[in-house]
Simulated scan of single mutants.
Amino acid sequence: MYLLELVGTDDALAAQEAGTRASGVERIAPALAVATGIDDRVGDLALTHRVGDLLARTDASLDAVLAALTDASIDREGSVAVRARTVRETAIDTQRVERRLGALLVERGFTVDLDSPDHELRAVFSGECGALAWLTHDLDRSVADRAPTDRPFFRPGCMAPTLARALVNLAGARPGRTILDPMCGTGGHLAEARRVGARAIGIDVERAMAAGAAQNLAAVDDDGWLVARGDATALPVGAVEGCVVDVPYGRQTKVASRDVETLVEAALAELRRVTGRVVLVGDRPYVDLARATGWTVSVHVERRVHRSLDRHIHVLDRA
Rank of each mutant, 00 (worst) to 15 (best):
D11L: 06
I38D: 10
T111Y: 02
W134A: 02
R303G: 00
R273N: 13
E17R: 10
L55C: 08
D11H: 12
H137Q: 12
H300K: 03
Q215C: 10
A173G: 06
V287T: 15
L268Q: 08
R100W: 01
T296W: 06
L263C: 09
G250S: 08
A84N: 04
T20V: 13
V279N: 05
E77K: 12
L101V: 13
G8C: 11
R155D: 01
A67P: 00
A160Q: 15
A131Q: 05
L309N: 03
G202C: 09
A214K: 03
D113T: 05
A210Q: 02
R108L: 07
T186Y: 03
T296F: 00
D10N: 15
A228H: 03
G157A: 08
V247L: 07
D75W: 00
G238S: 12
G52H: 05
I203T: 02
A198K: 10
S126R: 04
A91C: 00
R258N: 09
A33C: 08
G185D: 06
V299P: 00
D283W: 07
Y2D: 09
V264T: 13
G176V: 11
D221H: 14
A193N: 04
E120H: 02
D44C: 05
A12I: 14
L55P: 10
R318S: 14
G176L: 01
A103F: 09
G8L: 13
P156L: 10
R85L: 11
Q16S: 15
C243N: 04
G224M: 03
G250D: 07
A81H: 08
H312G: 05
S116N: 14
D246R: 01
R122C: 12
M209W: 11
L55E: 13
R273A: 10
E120G: 04
V42Y: 07
R122M: 13
G238F: 07
S73F: 07
R304F: 00
